[in-house]
């Protein structure tokens, strides 16, 4: 039997499990992304406004970004044990840098004249933030979210090794039994998920692109 047939047969034979694993994978990815969005967008707005904080936070983040994701995932285990919570925490850490760095850059590069014009029109700081700055910053922030989502979908596969479940389960099993077909059953849906996320977010980016801000990162 060829590898393709074998993979197909295994997937058909474990359809329920595959479905559950895909759902788990998506749940893992969305929770990590949502938590990092809630933390990093306000943080990014804040760092973009104060030079001192920005230097401190962005340098720290860049330092963390250098550490391989596998090391971040596995390093959680001695401190938090294995399980879903550990995986969510690790994946959140991995999703944060791109979102924070892009949010910071997005707000920092807004033309001050635009903000002054808004203030001159009598807008309150809150209105300027939500009605002027956010729409202008959104495309660049979305670039960060795109990067983060690819990163998290990829790393969530590795998270199966620390007991998170998800599609990495098949990768882990295929690795333990050395069966390439089982590895493929895990790998192909992950590839499709990254592709889908990429297409979804890039079309979203095109939709929300304000006509005045032609320049994105």
């Amino acid at each position: 039997m060829s590898l393709a047939q074998e993979t197909w047969a295994y997937a058909l034979g474990h359809l329920d499990e595959l479905q559950q694993a895909t759902l788990d994978h998506l749940l893992l990815v969305t929770s990590a992304l949502l938590i990092s969005l809630f933390v990093c967008i306000p943080l990014g707005v804040w760092t973009s406004r104060s030079r001192g904080t920005a230097n401190f936070v962005i340098n720290g983040i860049n330092g963390v970004r250098v550490i391989p994701s596998l090391a971040i995932l596995f390093l959680m285990v001695p401190y938090m044990g294995v399980g879903l919570d550990t995986a969510v925490v690790a994946l959140t850490i991995l999703a944060m840098p791109p979102i924070l760095v892009n949010t910071d850059a997005a707000f920092r590069t807004i033309d001050p004249a635009v903000k002054e014009a808004a203030a001159g029109m009598g807008m309150t700081p809150r209105q300027i933030l939500f009605k002027v700055e956010f729409p202008l910053a959104l495309p660049v922030i979305l670039t960060g979210i795109r990067t983060a989502s690819t990163e998290v979908i990829a790393s969530a596969t590795l998270a199966a090794f620390i007991g998170s479940g998800g599609l990495g389960l098949f990768v882990q099993r295929g690795y333990a039994m050395y069966r390439p077909s089982i590895l493929f059953v895990g790998a192909i849906p992950v590839a499709l998920l990254t592709l889908a996320a990429e297409i979804l977010l890039s079309s979203l980016q095109r939709v929300i692109q304000p006509p005045t801000a032609a320049k994105t990162a």
């Binding site: 590898l3 690819t150 979908i153 990829a154 790393s155 596969t157 590795l158 990768v171 390439p180 590895l183 493929f184 895990g186 790998a187 192909i188 992950v190 590839a191 990254t194 592709l195 990429e198």
Partner: peptide, 14 residues
């Protein structure tokens, strides 16, 4: 580059 590295290596394995 979008393909996760783990997936890429699995696909290259055969």
């Amino acid at each position: 580059y979008t393909i996760p590295s783990l997936v890429l290596m699995i696909l290259l394995l055969p």
